[in-house]
Write a protein that binds this DNA or RNA. Sequence first.
DNA 1: CTGGGGAAGGGGCCC
DNA 2: TGGGCCCCTTCCCCA
Length: 730
Amino acid sequence: MLHAMEVPSHARHLLLQLNTQRTKGFLCDVIIVVQNALFRAHKNILAASSLYLKSLVVHDNLINLDHEMVSPGVFRVILDYIYTGRLTEGDPSSPTEPNLGAVLAAASYLQLLDLVALCKKKMRRNGKYPLRPTPAFLPYGKMGPNSLGLGGGGRYRVSTPVIQSCYPGGVVNTHTPRAPPLEELPPHPHATHAGELYAPTSSQGPQVFPSTPSALPAQPSLRPAHSDRNCSPIYGLDLSKKSPNSQSQNTPSHPHLAHALPHHDEEREGGLSGRTSPMPGNNGGAYPTEKMETADQAGSLPPHSYPHLNKPLGPHLHRSSSQGPDHYPCPLSPDTPTEAGEPSREVGNIYRWVKHEPLSYTAEDEEDDEDEEERGGNGDQNHQHHNHHHKAGEESDDRYRRVGCDGEEEKSGSGSEGTGSSEGRPSPTGAMGRFHLPYEPESFGDNLYVCIPCDKGFPSSEQLNAHVETHTEEELYSGGEMGSSNPKNNSSNSNGNGSLNSLEGKSSHSLTPGVLGEIIRPYRCNSCEKSYKDPATLRQHEKTHWLTRPYPCSICGKKFTQRGTMTRHMRSHLGLKPFACDHCGMRFTRQYRLTEHMRIHSGEKPYECQVCGGKFAQQRNLISHMKMHSSGGGGGALTADGKLKLDFSEGIYPLSKYAAEHLGLKQEKASELLAEHAMESLFPLSKLAAEHLRLSHHDKMDVLGVQALPPPPGSLSDFHSRTIERYSPS
DNA sequence: CTGGGGAAGGGGCCC
DNA sequence: TGGGCCCCTTCCCCA
């Protein structure tokens, strides 16, 4: 008969691991939104801690808690408690620390019975437990879980604990100009804490500007004074971009832009908080969470009470001194420059939250890794990046990864697009496959913290860190080429067939004349006929062929082939619109949009319909317009104003985008060809295009001496290039 | 009611 | 990594 044996520290170690994973966002599968803060956590843990939380997490991955009942700071304490079993009571004299009463109220609200008992016990001990609790202390004083309508799936007002569906089907749509109910908008995560992100507090949601010009106030001055603060950079991942053409003028009217400037950080906090915060004793440099700490303050402050929340993170991050780094151990993200002021572990974590570490790992993700390995040769990129990150990395990048107790490796994000699919994900095959390291987690025994370059294991992250310090960059370049050779050489070998390697290894003049074009775009995709000038672009392109996409959105799970696209997508979730129009204050997520928008004010309509002469400020609208002409099928007649009316129905525009791409030309270039030949006849290009298709695009470019000059917008050639594919057979 | 134009949001992709 | 552009799509307004 077996006698049950218990390892006394098992539970503790398990909790420790879980908490560590939480702070790193590792395997986190739920985001809890508390006012302007986002917390990552594990559903299982939350569900095991509270029936209420269990009911919340069971169906949704993005949970919005009532910030009037739970402030971000309080929830941080609570989350710490859940993961550690310890209640860290802040300094009672500190206005920035959550008080026990607030924690008690929140714990009651969240049905954390043990924590309620603990709070009461502590308060009794401190002589603070009220015989007749104030409403703020009353469990479910505002609305308890029993009154929440926990059916899930629905959307609730902010005044109730909100569950926001976050996966397709329940995706919060922040981009529609129709202005969704603002409370549905997820807040901006502005991180100040490991696993915790912060957004500008806004009871109205992050986007208060009407999205359509028609809904805009006539004058910018009519805009809500605080509205501009709602579009602020995300902490941790600089999702913000300054609006170049509005930066100077926007300082007063768009202080968020100023927040994006690092030097504004401290001054603005004091200044703006003094100007806008109704909260007495608002210490300018306080940790955002902590400003909202007390129960009576929580939820009662207008969004602009925390202008400092608008500070960008990344290099500009300010982290709270109240956060113990040892309490939240997390490696620096390599993306977080340590020399940029305050080195912040949180920065790295937070950055990774959006950038590197997907919340959920799927089989598909694993396939990504395998795909990458199959393509081979990407390890070189890792090396390059590792060198790059070495200084910043404290504990884990790909080189210095910790092998989790469960045998999974954990690694913080690093690398680039080239390593994309592996980023932030546990990849059992990753280390072996990419670096050809002969280790299995088990082989290290207790030395679970492994230095990838030298293959040494260490029993603790501290020892690994100390060891890592002994590596020099030179070492990493010269000696750290395990499994992959010269990073430069290998960087191109992304398709695994070696062809690129061979190409790259040669100087261009060693190529045969027959592949002259490949000098220009020597990196061909194996899956299609596209070719690129550099291997990185090829790798980027190759991802478009993958069945799985390596960059999932942490909020909605949507996956992208490029991190930049995902980051951009995140902005839409967070309502971050850094580009502001000077004229009307309209804000955009992209510079290009602003440029486009500015044409409205300038009256510029560079896109002209060559059929009817109609002019458009947006090229896409011209294209739309041309469709109209196409559907009309009017034939090559003249319009009333004498312009040629084209016949789109007879294959006049056979040079599709596909063809142009096969030619290795941008459409503008292709349109140049069109324009050239239009000298002879207006539209003789069907044959020409066919000929082009039979020729190497490089050859063709060479033969034709194509210049890269794009046609002026609205020109005939421009029109050709931008519209022909719509009418082409392809 | 319908179609067209204006404007904007978002994703894909290349540089 | 971000910028820029292309494309699709949607919504609103208006004739």
